[in-house]
Simulated scan of single mutants.
Amino acid sequence: MATLSVPHDIVSEILHRLGVNDLLRFKCVSKAWCSLIDDPDFAKLHLSHSLKAGTNLSLVPRGLDGGLLSVELHSLKRVRRLKHPLESYHDKFADLLGSCNGLLALMSRRDEISLWNPSTRKSRMFPAAAVEISRGRLRRGFVVYGFGYDRISDDYKLLQMAQYYFSNDDSIKSEVKVYSSSSNCWRRIQDFNFYIKYKLVHGVLANNALHFVVSRMRRSEPLVAAFDLGTEEFRLLELPDCLGTGFSLNVRALGGYLSLTVSYYLGVHVWDVHDTEIWVMKEYGVRESWTKLISIKQSEFILGFNYVLPLAFSNNADKVLLYVDRNKFMWYDLRSRRVENERDLGGVPRFQGVEMLVVSLVAL
């Protein structure tokens, strides 16, 4: 029987619609298939299809013990523990610095950083940049990170921002460095002279920029700062013009949009949440494009929540998956304005922080 020859572009069109596990097995079919699947351009095509179709998505929560889990997004089932490259016999801790194109940026207690693809199990290891701030009488401080891909330079970048301050006034010293995967080195860039509000929250990637909640003074109203991965410059984004007073902010990426969670408080404590609004910026950088997507009153929906963060849209975009406090997920129906299917991850210990991950073939 004569061998049937299928054109290369047809083979590529078929294969890029498959899952990563299948593709890794199919590398054994022939040298041509192996070469195709290992091609960086094929990895980009496969990633683009997954992102457009909303497939191959999972959640990666970090447990309070520092271990990482993987949870299928739409079913919230198939929970499994991830064995990451920073894990040792004595210590499985990994801080989640960010997620982008199927890669996770992780950090160990020993300041080792790994850019890791859990699907292909390939990683790159390097040390965090040394902080060179002359502290003097500056006793308090912290370091936050942000991870993303710059489409213009075709480069993955990791942002490191160190900030130290006095405990009794508004004086600060900051230091900003950027790691480039293409050059495999750190370099110092301009300083950042706004106060970073949350020392345990890393940058949120949306629209080719990393976003942080900041303020002009430590106790002033919160703002949103964006670090452009292309120009490597900071800018402030304008907030919706109809916000009230006495609120806190959180930023997330939601369906390709920058998302803003506004939590209003009745009292001075974080557990006195009264109302939560979730906004999306439909046209990036345009203040008038902020659109209120969800408004939740604690008395009507969720008893005793401290915070709510949006994670993803459903397949037909009529629901939003919400992450509530430290161990609960729920779907919010945008049509009925009701919460559905509140659930925690049965048998899974409490966790702190969660990232979205798309399964991909991307390599550094």
Score class of each variant (00 low, 15 high):
109 R>V: 14
231 T>R: 09
200 L>M: 08
138 L>D: 03
85 P>C: 10
251 V>D: 01
36 L>H: 11
111 D>P: 05
311 L>C: 09
352 Q>M: 12
276 T>V: 14
124 R>A: 05
68 L>W: 01
117 N>R: 13
122 K>N: 14
256 G>A: 07
199 K>Q: 05
311 L>V: 11
14 I>Q: 06
152 I>D: 02
297 K>S: 15
56 N>Q: 13
22 D>S: 13
148 G>V: 02
97 L>E: 05
272 D>W: 03
99 S>P: 12
157 K>R: 14
76 L>Y: 06
143 V>F: 11
315 N>H: 10
167 S>I: 15
11 V>Y: 08
274 H>N: 09
245 T>W: 08
11 V>T: 11
103 L>E: 07
340 E>H: 07
115 L>M: 14
91 D>W: 11
274 H>Q: 15
184 N>M: 07
193 N>Q: 15
297 K>A: 10
242 C>P: 00
290 W>L: 02
107 M>R: 07
245 T>M: 11
52 K>Q: 07
209 A>L: 14
66 G>N: 01
345 L>H: 06
184 N>L: 13
359 V>K: 00
284 Y>K: 08
58 S>A: 15
211 H>W: 05
312 A>I: 09
363 A>N: 13
161 M>P: 00
209 A>D: 01
310 P>L: 12
141 G>E: 02
244 G>R: 03
230 G>N: 12
205 L>S: 04
39 D>P: 12
350 R>E: 13
65 D>S: 15
53 A>T: 11
259 S>G: 10
173 K>E: 11
284 Y>V: 00
358 V>H: 02
314 S>Q: 13
356 M>N: 13
4 L>P: 00
243 L>K: 08
337 R>V: 08
31 K>G: 09
292 K>M: 07
169 D>E: 14
127 P>K: 13
315 N>D: 04
160 Q>K: 09
182 S>C: 08
52 K>I: 04
107 M>L: 12
83 K>N: 14
168 N>Y: 15
127 P>W: 08
203 G>W: 05
113 I>G: 11
235 R>W: 07
325 D>T: 09
76 L>P: 14
133 I>P: 09
112 E>V: 12
195 Y>N: 06
239 L>S: 03
122 K>C: 08
297 K>F: 01
18 L>F: 07
201 V>G: 01
249 L>I: 12
277 E>A: 14
6 V>I: 15
333 D>F: 14
145 Y>V: 01
48 S>Q: 12
294 I>E: 00
240 P>A: 06
308 V>L: 13
7 P>V: 09
354 V>E: 04
121 R>I: 11
356 M>W: 06
262 V>Q: 06
157 K>W: 05
321 L>F: 03
225 A>K: 05
96 L>D: 02
153 S>E: 00
316 N>P: 00
364 L>Y: 07
166 F>M: 15
55 T>C: 13
133 I>A: 03
265 Y>I: 14
211 H>C: 04
218 R>L: 06
232 E>Y: 08
26 F>Q: 01
276 T>C: 15
67 G>K: 02
21 N>G: 04
73 L>S: 03
147 F>Y: 02
247 F>A: 10
285 G>T: 10
257 Y>H: 15
312 A>L: 04
205 L>I: 12
285 G>P: 01
41 D>P: 00
166 F>K: 04
279 W>A: 05
148 G>N: 03
205 L>C: 03
361 L>Y: 03
116 W>E: 12
